[in-house]
Amino acid sequence: MVFQDTIKLAPQGKGASDITGPIRDIIRDSKIKTGSCQLFVHNSQSRLLIHDTVDEATKEQTVDFLAQLAPGRDDSVNLINDSMEAIPASMYTAVTQTTIAFPVSRGKPLLGIWQGIFLWERTTEPKERILTITIIGE
């Protein structure tokens, strides 16, 4: 059985926001008990991360690290000028994910106890985002 849904995520500012709750609800409503769930975000600026949920600082530090790895216009004004913002944005896409997949068991996402699903936004201009969720199972 295949269940597919496309949802809109409200515009959010720069940073990572936990979307585990809505994903959990969709999996429950799909009635699929055992299988695999795939998420795909329809733009390259926002990224999907499976991250630690315990300490808020870990998420901030990861985002800071990625910002240092490929500084954007607002991260390091000395290094990158306005016209070059697209370059670091594309570097992020090489080291982070547009799509993630995780198992579904007993009608729930089978995540580790400290794992959460996050949408990470790089942009300084918040936009509504489209996410497709495909659940295959029985």
Binding site: S36, P103, L110
Partner: peptide
């Protein structure tokens, strides 16, 4: 078919 692997840890 397809084999999906998933590690349940963040470290």
């Amino acid at each position: 078919g397809i084999c999906n692997l998933f590690i349940q840890h963040t470290s």
